[in-house]
């Protein structure tokens, strides 16, 4: 599983202190150190670039306003930022749901697009796109543990810190999320009638 080199937590703590004192350069440095993971998380959770843009900006402004709430002894700054990003994503999803702006149509279109007719079009890219869509259709509390543990390589402990629940709950949610992903992908394959082709593709993917 790919993993970014962990940012130096001491340097983060110093930068946060300087930022709280009003140092613009410290804030810019913090942004550059962590924007990738925050943006990636937001993109994987929302599936929309413009939403990920907004979430990223809101996360760092939340850090600017409430940076004093970050306690280095309690964890890495990246973990703290994941937690903030997760809350903002959930707020946005609640707002969107309240306004009935859930982009179900786009999801259906994408799912249709991800189920190709000719067997030879079942490329690895399409398979991954199908999996991405399946992840996006997971309920938020399952989606976030899959994104954090499987795509961001966070430990169970770190994930528990981010989502604010016990480690045991993280484990059970992760298992449930994996089962849901498997089921949904299998259902997609059955719908497309291309089980054998998918299986052939899957068997060629090395771990």
């Amino acid at each position: 599983m790919p993993q970014e080199p962990p940012p130096n937590s001491d340097a983060d703590a110093v930068l946060v202190s300087r930022m709280i004192a009003g140092d613009r350069e410290a804030f810019a440095a913090l942004f550059r150190r962590h924007e990738r993971s925050v943006y990636r998380f937001a993109l994987q959770m929302t599936g929309a670039g413009d939403l990920a843009d907004d979430v990223t900006q809101e996360v760092f402004m939340a850090l600017a306003r409430g940076g004093s709430r970050y306690v280095p002894e309690q964890g890495l700054l990246s973990t703290y930022l994941y937690g903030v990003a997760r809350n903002i994503v959930r707020q946005q999803e609640r707002r969107r749901r309240a306004r009935q702006e859930v982009d179900l149509e786009a999801i259906e279109v994408d799912r249709a697009a991800a189920v190709p007719d000719p067997v030879d079009q079942l490329t690895r890219e399409r398979s991954l796109a199908a999996l991405r869509q399946a992840i996006l259709r997971l309920p938020p509390h399952y989606r976030e543990v899959i994104v954090l543990c499987a795509l961001h390589a966070l430990s169970y402990d770190e994930t528990a810190l981010v989502v604010g629940c016990p480690v045991g709950t993280v484990r059970s949610r992760l298992n449930r999320a994996r089962r849901m992903l498997s089921d949904r992908c299998r259902a997609s394959l059955r719908e497309s009638g291309a089980v054998s082709s998918w299986s052939r593709v899957l068997s060629g993917v090395s771990r």
Binding site: M1, P2, E4, R24, F27, A28, F31, R32, E35, R36, V38, Y39, R40, L43, Q44, G49, A52, D53, T56, Q57, F60, M61, R124, S127, L128, L131, R132, I146, A150, L151, H152, A153, R178, L181, S182, C185, L202, V205, S206, R207
Partner: peptide
Amino acid sequence: QLDAWLADIAREDEGVTAPAHVETRTM
């Protein structure tokens, strides 16, 4: 198979960064 696909997605997304305008807007 699921692990392999998830690992592929993680690898694909490694290079993803926020567009430049996000930094401009944030600053």
